[in-house]
Design a protein around this nucleic acid. Sequence first.
DNA 1: TCCTTTGCAGTACAGTTGTACTGTGTACGG
DNA 2: CCGTACACAGTACAACTGTACTGCAAAGGA
Lengths: 213, 213
Amino acid sequence: MPRTVDHEQRRTQIADAAVRLAGREGLHAVSMRAVAAEAGISLHLVQYYFGTKAELIHAGLRHLERQSNERWAARLAALPQPVSARAYLEAFFEEALPTDDVSRTFHLVGASYAVLAMTDPDLADLPFVAGLSHLEKHLDDALRRGQADGSLPAGLDPAHQASVLVALNHGIGTTVMIGQRTAEEARTVLQRHLAALFDGGTPHASGHDSPAD
Amino acid sequence: MPRTVDHEQRRTQIADAAVRLAGREGLHAVSMRAVAAEAGISLHLVQYYFGTKAELIHAGLRHLERQSNERWAARLAALPQPVSARAYLEAFFEEALPTDDVSRTFHLVGASYAVLAMTDPDLADLPFVAGLSHLEKHLDDALRRGQADGSLPAGLDPAHQASVLVALNHGIGTTVMIGQRTAEEARTVLQRHLAALFDGGTPHASGHDSPAD
DNA sequence: TCCTTTGCAGTACAGTTGTACTGTGTACGG
DNA sequence: CCGTACACAGTACAACTGTACTGCAAAGGA
């Protein structure tokens, strides 16, 4: 074999450029040429490593999900062990809220892919949907742990609440992204929701009192 | 004045075609030519009534919002009067869930516009964001009415719960659109959330769930 | 009557897109 | 030493995009 190059590394580099571009200018701005420019390589190389645009988009999605997983794992690892259910859920919201550039990118690209998945059925069976279900399962587990150690009421249904949490997180994140509310306001909404859960669900939350934590 | 045509009607006809197209094939498939074909007119006419594409997109958004308002009003009018808070909120979820073609279109186009608004700041100040806030205000009012007539606990914060409801609705709708869960499953989640609200917020696991103590 | 304005058609144009093509240096196997 | 497989460059091409252009029938005011 002649001159050999780490294909996987090259692909990662290009996929990273694609995601970066999508996060900065939107997924509609992701063209083969734009990705090439972003990665500082020639158009041909993008073709060379991802024969078609669809494959590039797919790879971008996988790359994004991997990035997100790593970030999430790092955040969890930074928490005092063992991680309580509440700390776990708060870390989830904190990670998912579009507060900084990385999470904004994640939300924007995630939403773009979601829209794409609505019309392109090929994208629907991709890790995208699976990733969401996986996430819901994790929250489900965390809620069960909370019930096990008594910090969460035994009465609530973990699966149902996990669904609500994921949907609520996505919905609130969207409102932040389009500028309807600030990330700070969104954080308050999420934390009050969490507080209500852990407080036995009694909607004590009168006024704009923020949950003491 | 020579031959005169109702401009507003023409514009509505074209905007309707644009929304129909966006709902069927996604907002990315909305081009001047495609809209012309969908409306059964020439490309020039689209240009004639909407000088630029941006204006067409804007008009499409306004048209969609108007359609949604009409649908919403019709659903409310069909309810037995006076409309209770709970019936109002249930009607909201029922209307917003992507169950039929119309609401699926609404969700898809709405999500597309949301993504657009994330990157294009010109779109952010459009009725899109205002419409969401308006909706939240309506739910807020409904929640307050529920507290006034005693069907809702006085302790909960209507503004906060309204935010949660809107975000939850959007998030759950998205999961349905990408095929993660069925509309039926989503309806169950929403109804259980509502039930918990009206039941004093105690998250008792009503439904098929069996107490596994 | 003419003629100006309106509604519309068709086409042209410059730009961007995804994809396919030809060419080129270079490192290794023979 | 040589040729072949590899990594890459550059370019060509057809399709599509938004926008701008010229042309033209008709309807009402002068």
